[in-house]
Design a protein around this nucleic acid. Structure first.
Length: 717
DNA sequence: TATGAACACGTTTTT
DNA sequence: CGTGTTCATA
């Protein structure tokens, strides 16, 4: 085990990093620890990423080849940032380093050995929508829910199945416990699960979960293959370990089985993904699985002022299921966190905008500020207000670029080209032909499945012309040789499955220019906009060697990352709006946390169970620890009823705020709008009155002292 | 197959 | 109240 450092000499290409000077004692210990299992508990803002990146640099400095390092992260962003930072530290080329999300790494293994997993080359990755479609088609085939309206919808069933896969727990067990409301449907759900599995093989496709479970499975079934990877990865590093689920944890353990050189980094207080199977208990059980593990704790917080940290520490202390630890501040004393009650979401948005402008005048950039919230829907009013005031912002939206119809259409064409079994993609593409609907498309597919040429299938008469165009397009994409050909080299000609594949860029070009642009014109009013999107996508595809790589990237990358080029220029000064989940790992000088009303944050559904309430509290903890200098906590007292008239529109402030001692916050009060500025008829809480508040000058708008008792909105009745 | 009317339902969080 | 889904009909 100790041998790995002697593989090559660190002498010539050493980075010359002064590790002692660049790291504090706690970090230094972890970074320079000898090979072997080790657990790093790193609190928020304690330089977790720094520790990991320096560790990678250290390993490389010790002579480890980048190709023999595996760095697992949860988001693409984290992977990219870490690799960039390592790159800037060491002279070596890092392209051979295996760094990426679990899904990417799983995909890479699967793509290398598809046969072992029962897949064909060119297999499709189903995103959530695709998976749901597969289930829907199963439903109609099984005629399960023809009668019973209460039978879980495909989306719900998918959630259970996914949870079952990720936690390694049987549906039966899940329905007994967490999903007791589904107890009566256990039998059919189990059947659906197995049918779903089988169906995915039939259409040569995998879903997100398979990207983890299948690689693990084929490694376990092929010891020789497993050894290859177990030997290859001389060092494995895992970021955000508290968010790993059962499968991921096994995956890591399995890959690390030979060298046992594994560093996992995490913070149980920041575990916020249990809803998709993450268990922060993985941290707790790590020393049990690796009795010789070294444990490091990094508690010094460089990010936030002590006032913010006190609030964070105090809040998380309310959790019972945790490993207590306090963050130590090193920053000098700064501003107190500010609590701001607002009358309603509009006033709240108003306040945020107003304050942002003031801070800008004080010299802060927009890019140094962020607005965080629990759910995307909480940001609507703010978006309106920001737009109205011309404050540029980027929103890490829940809507994925990939989920837009035209992008999915394009992807579907590509999928058919490389995976003829992809029924989901076929149905989508065929239904774009006028005159062909779900049933006809289904029929067409079953004739094509027998190996028949597209040209010989017989669609309805009125669809014939377009169908011929489509058929021609597909054979062009597949390089079917009927049209034009250079004689293929003998070696290739023998194996009919080995086709010389068109690069993705050319495929897209053909699809767009000869066929799909017409479809766009017919179906969408903003066709040119969408065509422009797709042309950009074509340019983006240039960097991928194969279409399957490109498609995988499209499915595994979040919309945010893909949408960047089409958004405002990257160097523009913009405000960031984001959910707390997506904010994890990021930091800003100034953070606004809005909609802190009980029922919204924590969400009403989470307040029933103790576990989920604690997770909400960890989410709150993550949110407040994003702030470096200033933290604003706001909540609206009434909710603008969007239809839910049965619900009480009056809201309490979040229990997470109640839990925090008063003296840890400063309370600001928004001045009610002056009567002579508002419409005479306007009610106190109406839109009109809040609109008038926009015009109020900043200093009158806000009252900066907490000496005035806040109006007591807590007992409205 | 495509359309409109009736009807239910009410928004987590993401690879 | 607005959106998405289902059902009946041309």
């Amino acid at each position: 085990m100790s041998r790995i450092y002697t593989l090559s000499r660190p002498s010539r290409r050493s980075s010359g990093i002064d590790y002692r000077g660049a790291l504090n004692d706690e970090q230094y210990e972890a970074v320079t620890s000898p090979p072997g299992p080790c657990l790093v508990i790193a609190g928020a803002g304690s330089g977790k990423t720094r520790t990991l990146t320096y560790r990678v640099a250290w390993l490389i400095d010790q002579g480890l080849l980048p190709s023999r390092i595996l760095l697992l992260t949860f988001t693409n962003k984290a992977a990219r940032e870490m690799l960039e930072r390592v790159s800037s530290l060491v002279p070596q080329d890092l392209t051979s380093l295996w760094g990426g999300t679990f899904h990417h790494v799983g995909h890479r293994i699967l793509r290398t050995h598809p046969r072992e997993a029962g897949l064909e080359q060119g297999f499709t990755i189903l995103d959530r929508d695709d998976a749901q479609e597969v289930l829907t088609s199963l439903y109609s085939r099984l005629e399960i829910n023809a009668k019973d309206k209460r039978f879980p919808r495909p989306s719900v069933a998918l959630e259970i199945i996914s949870y079952s896969e990720n936690t390694n727990r049987a549906i039966t067990e899940l329905c007994e416990k967490e999903f007791s409301f589904l107890a009566e449907f256990v039998e059919p759900l189990i059947r659906i699960q197995s049918q779903y599995r089988q169906r995915k093989y039939e259409i040569n496709a995998v879903d997100y979960d398979d990207l983890l479970t299948l690689p693990l499975k084929i490694l376990k079934q092929n010891p020789l293959l497993a050894e290859r990877y177990q030997f290859q990865f001389q060092a494995i590093l895992v970021d955000e370990f508290q968010d790993t689920n059962a499968v991921q944890s096994q995956f890591i353990d399995y890959l690390a089985a030979h060298h046992r050189h594994l560093m996992v980094v995490g913070d149980d207080a920041q575990s916020i993904y249990s809803w998709r199977g993450a268990r922060f208990e993985n941290i707790l059980s790590f020393p049990e699985r690796y009795p010789d593990a070294r444990i490091f704790r990094i508690r010094t917080n460089y990010r936030s002022v002590p006032e913010i940290l006190s609030l964070a520490n105090m809040s998380i202390a309310a959790n019972t299921r945790q490993f207590p630890k306090e963050l130590r501040a090193v920053k000098p004393s700064g501003n107190m966190p500010v609590l701001v009650p607002a009358a309603d979401p509009h006033q709240q948005a108003n306040f945020v905008c107003q304050r942002i402008i003031e801070l800008q005048n004080e010299g802060y950039n927009l890019s140094e500020m962020a607005v965080l919230y629990r759910a995307h829907s909480h940001a609507i009013e703010l978006q309106l207000e920001l737009t109205k005031r011309n404050i540029p912002f980027v929103i890490t939206s829940g809507i994925q670029f990939f989920q837009q119809a035209h992008v999915k259409d394009l992807a579907a064409h590509l999928r058919i080209a490389i995976n003829p079994a992809d029924e989901i993609a076929f149905l989508r593409v065929a239904s774009l032909v006028p005159g062909i609907g779900a049933t006809t498309a289904q029929k067409l597919f079953s004739t094509l499945k027998t190996g028949k040429s597209w040209h010989l299938a017989n669609p309805p008469k009125k669809s014939a012309t377009v169908w011929v165009r489509l058929a021609t397009l597909i054979s062009q994409l597949r390089q079917e040789t009927s049209v034009k050909l250079k004689p293929a080299p003998a070696a290739i000609a023998q194996d009919s499955t080995t086709q010389v594949e068109l690069p993705p860029e050319e495929m897209i070009n053909v699809i767009l220019e000869t066929y799909y642009c017409d479809v766009l014109q017919l179906r969408y009013d903003n066709a040119s906009q969408r065509l422009e999107d797709l042309r950009q996508l074509r340019d983006y595809s240039r960097q991928f060697a194969s279409t399957s790589e490109f498609l995988a990237q499209l499915t595994l990358l979040t919309g945010v990352e893909l949408a960047r080029p089409s958004n405002a220029p990257a160097d523009a000064d913009t405000l960031r709006l984001t959910t707390v989940h997506q904010a994890k790992g990021l930091e800003w000088k100034i953070v606004f946390l809005i909609h802190l009303a009980d029922g919204l944050f924590p969400l009403a559904r989470s307040t029933q169970e103790c576990d989920s309430l604690e997770e909400e509290r960890r989410l709150f903890y993550v949110a407040v620890t994003r702030a470096q200098d200033q933290l604003y906590l706001t909540y609206p007292i009434i909710r603008l009823s969007r239809g839910q008239f049965s619900l009480d529109p009056i809201q309490r402030k979040s229990r997470f705020i109640e839990e925090i001692p008063h003296h840890l916050m400063e309370q600001w009060q928004i001045e009610p709008p002056r009567p002579d500025w508002s419409n005479t008829t306007a009610a106190p809480h109406s839109l009109n009155s809040t609109t008038s508040a926009i015009k109020s000058p900043p200093k009158q708008y806000l009252e900066d002292h907490c000496s005035d008792p806040a109006p007591n909105y807590d007992e409205p009745f």
